[in-house]
Each structure stands twice: as structure tokens, then as C-alpha cells.
Amino acid sequence: MSRSFTLRTVGRLGGLIRRFVAEFGQAAMLLWRAASYTRRIPRDRRLLLDQMAHIGADSLPLVFVIGFFTGMVSAWQAAYQFKGLIPYSLLGAAVSRAIFLELGPVLTAIVIAGRVGASIAAEIGTMRVTEQIDALESLAISPARYLALPRIVAAVIMMPLLVIFANAIALGGAYIVSNLFLDISSKMFFESVQRFFQVKDIVIGLVKALFFGGATAFIGVHVGMNASGGAEGVGNATIRSFVLSSAMILVLDVMLWKIFF
């Protein structure tokens, strides 16, 4: 009884490892193939611009809302923690550095993973299950060049731009709360932001965003390409893409933090 349980467990573990290695190999192959077409980007600029509009411009309203509320809440949160310990004159600096380094890049990336990563997985997954990807290949068009590369490059370019936008909006949200609800004057808030401002904070945030963007789009493409089983398969691919992207964003965040600090 116990021996058969052990054998079953080892068998399952073996299967799991085999699937992981196979999937990792597929993902690495896709990335390699996409990278091998980078020289064709200027010729394929129309595909890239379409994706930049979809990933970047179309995400602005959502990023605005997320940035604004994140800024507001972080100001209240900071005030709650400062109370009786740290003067409010430092609130602007604390909030802005948290936004630039962590909240702006991570929250924007997770929202984009939900909106863009999932939509990439759904779109490419639908193309997979309806044989449209096979049709592309039959026309001698590489899906790695035509579908994967423009999405990954567009996300790498647009994510830092979205984070800059989110940072500005979040800072605005934090200022409004500080000014209207916490009696912190504009002068005090912005002086504090300015006094402790470091370009390094912004740069680190943007480098993180670049990695988050690439990972989100790549996971969406990879999961979509491997979708199977009709509408249910596409639904599963969408969920899987969001879950994997969100986890990967947090893992990358830890790794990059360790590298930068």
C-alpha cells in the first residue's frame, strides 16, 4: 500500500518535472525564434505600431484610474503610519519614493497583465484553436515574427511609458489627499518630494517596468500559442496567462530589487 503510494507520488512528480522541462524548452525556443527576427522590426513597423497603440494608448484610462487611487491611498496610509512618529512634512518624499520605486511599476504591470497579457493570450489562443496560426505557417509566415515579436517589443517600450504616466497621476492623487484631507500645504508637499528626489529611483522603476512588460507579453504569447481544446482552452489560457504574469512580475521585482540594492 505504502509502496504503491510512493510509486504513484514519484510518477506524478516525474510527470510534473517532464511537463515543466518541456514547457520551458518550448518557451525558450519561442523567445529564440522571436529574437532571431529583431532585424526585421523596421520592415514590420506597422505591426509594432498597432501593438504599441493597443498596449500603450488603449491602456491609459485604466492606468489613470489605478494610478490616481493608488496615490490617494498611499498618502493616507503614510499619514496613518507617520502619526505621532514622523512629521507630515516628510510625507511627500515617502509617498513619492514608494510610488516611483515600487507602487507605480508593480501595480501598473499587474493591471497591464490583466488587460493586455490576458488579451494577448485570448487572441493568440483563439488563433491557435481555429487553425489561424497553422494558416500563418502554411503561408510561410513565422508566428514568432508576426505575432510574438511585435507584442513583446511593444510591451517592453510601452510599459515604462505607462509607468511614467502612472507615477505622475499617483503623485497627483497623493497631493490631492495630502492637501485636502491632511492639511499639508502644496509648498510643504512638493518641497519634501523635491528634497529627497533621486533620479535613480525613477530609473530603477522604469528598468523594472521594462522587464515586467517583456515578461507579461511573452507569457501571454507563449500561453496563447499552446492553447488547446476550443473555447474552454482559450478561457484557461487567459486565466493562466494572468496568474503566471502576476507571479512573474513579483518574482522579477524581488530579483531586480536584490540586483539594484
Binding site: 481555429t130 489561424q132 497553422d134 494558416a135 502554411s138 503561408l139 510561410a140 509566415i141
Partner: peptide, 29 residues
Amino acid sequence: RQELGFLFQGSALFDSMTVLENVTLGLRE
């Protein structure tokens, strides 16, 4: 593959493209 033509069972037309774009995609690319 540029020498091959394939008619898929479910047609596999690109649903985000017009008929013209579908027919000419291979040539354009």
C-alpha cells in the same frame, strides 16, 4: 512553404482581416 497552398478544414481565415487582407497576406509578407 512559399510553394505550398493549404485549404484548412475550418477555412482558418484571419478573423480580424478583410477578405482582401486575407488573400494578400502571404504576398504582402
